[in-house]
Design a protein around this nucleic acid. Structure first.
Lengths: 200, 200
DNA sequence: ATTGCATCATAACAGTTATTATGTATGTAA
DNA sequence: TTACATACATAATAACTGTTATGATGCAAT
């Protein structure tokens, strides 16, 4: 009945709409409040839609988590296009941090999965592998920056990657908890201070 | 009946036992799995004990959260006794990070509360106030270190506090996710690098 | 026209949740 | 002993959880 109000080819997007609604509820109300009925209500339908496009609730959450990871990759690929300096990295980091509504949603959902992954075993590996990948990516980026003379040549790329990853994660959490204590210019100051020891 | 196997004056400690069991279950199985029955089973009793000493489940969780905050304060007070240098701060930070079984439990529980506090509003203020306090504490510590000549005199104490707080939080999360990627010596390396720009 | 498939709604199911009320020992004080 | 509060266990309750089965609707092809 209500399907008549939808356009055709919606079936393709319908699945993505479910995922988006799921992520929205998780970010707004928390992972524990993200029940099938709550997600369905967020989308404006019944749970029949969810069960039609996904076998399990777990399958839904897996896709949400996968999209978060893919989103980080996408933004990072945009940074790496062409020659980028330390200033570009700082700009990229500020865009990645939970400043915009979009990023706040991503970060909250990601953090919800993170704390939930401690108990469970299956989704925990997703986190370790994702962070391993981020570590390797940053390491190679710092190696590249050092080779191009953007930063000092005697730095330890792996150590720089680990340090930045930790700082970034911590800043994200702090911003989510009290955004007004850590506005954009404050973030830039922290990042600039962090990189002050590796500028040539 | 089973109360006969307990000693007298237990009534005083019994409440603390409930809190400890609650924290244990949260750290091991996650906040969502920490049901009244699960906590009671962890303690080896029924939910009657829990309802006897606490009005709500929420009241229990509040005490758990308060104990975590108090634990951080206790450890910090031990650091501030007497003259402490930058090396002492690094030692303290390594002890605070989730390296020991105790600290792992504290950190996991804290992180569970953190991600859960985004949706709810009541417990969220606990987080913001706690972090504000940490921020102020670190700021004054850095000011003191600068006055004593342990670190450079031209640093920004508030910025140093914010930076360290973020880095510390991030390192804690990273260690919980993949402890073998961030062992103790690696942690020390990151902290040493972090402080390299403020040594005299 | 009819068959069939995709897309949902509805309802029932068993399980789990926190909360509450009630019962039952045990110890203490009068 | 009697009276009473402490310290639990037990059980019932209503609400909520994910999953599943069953229908209903509309479109597309035969």
């Amino acid at each position: 009945m209500r399907a008549a109000s939808r356009t055709v080819a919606d079936g393709q997007n319908r699945r993505a709409e479910v995922v988006a609604a799921t992520r929205r509820v998780i970010a707004r109300d928390g992972l524990d409040k993200a029940s099938m009925r709550a997600i369905a209500q967020e989308l404006g339908c019944t749970t029949g839609v969810l069960t039609h496009y996904f076998r399990d609730k777990e399958a839904m959450l897996d896709v949400v988590l996968a999209e978060i990871v893919a989103g980080v990759d996408d933004r990072r690929r945009r940074l790496l296009s062409g020659d980028y300096g330390l200033a570009d990295v700082i700009d990229y980091l500020c865009d990645t941090l939970p400043n915009s509504d979009d990023q706040i949603e991503w970060w909250k959902a990601w953090l919800a999965f993170t704390s939930a992954s401690f108990g469970a075993g299956r989704r925990g590996t997703t986190h370790t592998r994702f962070y391993d990948q981020l570590r390797r990516n940053w390491e190679s980026s710092f190696r590249e920056l050092a080779a191009r003379g953007e930063i000092r040549a005697d730095i330890d790329p792996a150590l720089e990657g680990d340090s930045l990853l930790a700082l970034l994660d911590g800043m994200g959490v702090q911003i989510l908890i009290s955004p007004d204590k850590l506005p954009r210019d404050r973030q830039r100051a922290i990042l600039t201070r962090h990189f002050s020891s590796i500028v040539p």
